[in-house]
């Protein structure tokens, strides 16, 4: 059962990620990412992290991805332009990614037995989590709220129409 669930959702996850890369329209990519995140939520659940699974759906698939799609639509982002791209990214980036993957896979595969995961494993409940979060880690938790507050203020300041003047400066980039 666990195996089947893992295979299904890991497959969904990978498919979504690859689809994200292949799609040229941002909205398609965003929807693929939602698939990835939802499948990840299931995987979290399989690993016994019930609170995180819920949070993954609510925060990521819900809030963050809504924000993404909202921005995509707001900016009316169309298909990707066929730009020249970066040769460095192709020549150096791909081998580097391959090397990273190779090294990480080797390390993971050659590591000693990490144990197994099954459906009967103990589930970390929200209670367990909050017991730690609201006692030992109360200060970091509250600091996070401040961080989010700052982020809100920052995004408002950044996205606001500055001084009422539109600074559409097309000439600078169109010439390139």
């Amino acid at each position: 059962m666990h195996l089947i669930l893992f295979i299904v959702f890991a497959g969904l996850c990978l498919t979504g990620a690859i689809n994200l890369l292949l799609q040229t329209h941002p909205i398609n990519s965003a929807l693929s990412l939602i698939v990835v995140m939802t499948s990840l939520a299931v995987l979290y659940l399989l690993l016994g992290a019930e609170f995180l699974a819920a949070a993954q759906v609510i925060v990521y698939a819900g809030a963050i991805m809504v924000l993404f799609t909202f921005v995509v639509m707001l900016l009316n982002a169309g298909r990707e332009e066929r730009t020249l791209g970066s040769r460095v990214a192709r020549i150096l980036g791909f081998p580097a990614v391959t090397a990273i993957l190779a090294v990480m896979a080797t390390v993971i595969l050659r590591s000693e037995d990490l144990g197994v995961a099954g459906l009967r494993d103990r589930i970390t409940t929200t209670q367990d989590l909050s017991a730690v979060l609201f006692t030992k880690l109360l200060l970091p938790f509250e600091v996070t709220s401040v961080l989010i507050l700052i982020a809100i203020l920052g995004s408002v300041a950044l996205a606001r129409q500055g001084d009422g003047k539109t600074r559409v400066n097309i000439g600078r980039t169109a010439g390139k």
Binding site: H2, L3, F6, A10, M104, A117, G118
Partner: peptide, 20 residues
């Protein structure tokens, strides 16, 4: 229910996702 899979698989999935 007793079927179990090694955690290595999860880590591998994580590595692949990261590289993607």
């Amino acid at each position: 229910l007793q079927q179990e899979i090694p955690l290595t698989w999860y880590l591998l999935l994580s590595a692949v996702l990261f590289c993607l």
